[in-house]
Simulated scan of single mutants.
Amino acid sequence: MRDQRALDAIRRYITTNPERWTLDLYNCERRAQDPLTREIWQMLLAQPSTQQGG
């Protein structure tokens, strides 16, 4: 994980995923985009990785 904020967002995503099935990209009957998914991806893409290659 990149930082504690990203880890918390991913944990929240996993915990609430069943409740958001109507928004899931892989649900062929989805009703809208999932704002939490968008928030997580924007966060991950905006922050440089803290992991170092070995």
Rank of each mutant, 00 (worst) to 15 (best):
C28I: 10
P18M: 02
P48R: 14
E39D: 15
A32D: 15
M43C: 01
A32E: 15
A46Q: 10
Y13S: 03
T15K: 05
W21Q: 04
A32R: 08
T37V: 14
R5L: 06
D3W: 04
P18R: 02
L44D: 04
G53S: 09
T22N: 08
L23A: 03
I14W: 04
T16N: 03
R31K: 14
T22C: 02
R5K: 09
D34G: 11
Q51I: 10
I14C: 02
E29S: 10
R38V: 15
I40W: 07
R2S: 07
Y13H: 07
D8S: 04
Q47V: 07
I10Y: 10
I14R: 09
D24T: 01
W21I: 03
G53L: 12
L7R: 07
W21T: 01
Q4S: 10
A9E: 06
G54L: 13
G54M: 08
D8E: 13
R31N: 05
I40H: 05
T16W: 00
L45W: 06
T16Y: 01
L23H: 09
R31P: 00
A6S: 13
L45Q: 09
Y26A: 11
P35G: 11
A9Y: 04
R2A: 08
R5A: 13
Q47N: 06
R38D: 15
Q4D: 13
A46E: 11
E29Q: 13
I40T: 04
R38Q: 15
G54S: 09
W41V: 12
L44P: 02
R30Y: 13
M1V: 10
A32M: 08
L23Y: 14
R30M: 06
P35E: 11
A9Q: 12
A6T: 12
I10V: 12
L44C: 14
P18K: 02
M1C: 09
Y13P: 00
W41M: 12
G53T: 08
L23S: 03
Q51M: 10
R12P: 00
Q42P: 00
R12G: 01
G53R: 10
E29K: 10
D34Q: 11
S49L: 02
L25T: 06
Q33G: 07
R2F: 08
Y13I: 00
T22Q: 09
Q33T: 11
R12E: 15
L45D: 08
L44W: 05
I10N: 03
T15I: 09
R30P: 01
N17A: 15
Q4W: 04
S49N: 07
A46W: 01
P18L: 04
M43T: 04
D24W: 15
Q33C: 05
R5E: 13
T15D: 07
L36G: 05
M1P: 08
I14M: 05
E19A: 09
Y26M: 12
Y26E: 14
D34F: 13
D24F: 14
M1A: 12
E19M: 05
Y13W: 15
D34M: 12
W21G: 00
E19V: 00
C28W: 04
G54N: 09
